[in-house]
Design a protein around this nucleic acid. Sequence first.
DNA 1: TATTTCCGCAAGTATATACTTGCATAAATT
DNA 2: AATTTATGCAAGTATATACTTGCGGAAATA
Lengths: 123, 123
Amino acid sequence: METRRDVFQAIADPTRRKIIGLLARQSMNLNRISDNFEMSRQAVSLHIKILQECNLITIRKYGRERICEAKLENLNEVHQWTEQFGIFWSQKLKALKHVVEYTSTEPPKTSKNRPIDPPKRNK
Amino acid sequence: METRRDVFQAIADPTRRKIIGLLARQSMNLNRISDNFEMSRQAVSLHIKILQECNLITIRKYGRERICEAKLENLNEVHQWTEQFGIFWSQKLKALKHVVEYTSTEPPKTSKNRPIDPPKRNK
DNA sequence: TATTTCCGCAAGTATATACTTGCATAAATT
DNA sequence: AATTTATGCAAGTATATACTTGCGGAAATA
């Protein structure tokens, strides 16, 4: 039922991203959150549950209410994952080397007159 | 079958994240990529297809091969989404105001002697 | 006390997801 | 020409996902 559940999966859903956006501005109880969506309260509640499991929000009981708060720090995992490629961007992509190598030529007709070495599987 | 398909959903799967990581270092053909995984070639191929649809990779025909290249720029959407909350981190979270307000008190016993105003739905 | 509000639990459904295996085809290699 | 290699297409399956509706209970309000 609830196998893989990480931050990346949590933010995959647009509803959950919107919830995070809402809670980033102000903590709210469940019903208040679901006011922002067309779907049923239960549906929103389920999204909240998932976000909680992924440690992106915390829930605090306040009387009969449950106040949801965003724990934005835990978006760091995502931020850092994308960040790692940022290095490549500024370096104009190492992979770009390959692009240039290949795109400047036509596909080989035979193995003899190939303009460049074909990619070979080392196995 | 293929309804919602965006970058966030694309990177939700760990296999696809790994593929992006691989292609960020070096462009590869399909079989080469699938060498890095336990699953079948077809399974990997499907992930590639999804990544392509989300514009995270491009595929270039080279003879009988199909060379996959990462288009890391399009991770910007994710990067920026997380970035927007970075502002809040440095500001120690506006929402933190709420946390302090609420956590310092017990839940109200009656409506009379509530230590603070309860959250009210404006409807 | 009666009523409303906030919320969880549970059952049910339709579609999506992540795989698999088998077969077919075009392009290189021998 | 025969074989290997790279890949696509299609069918099939199990589980996950994103919802719904209905019921019940605890807490606040009138």
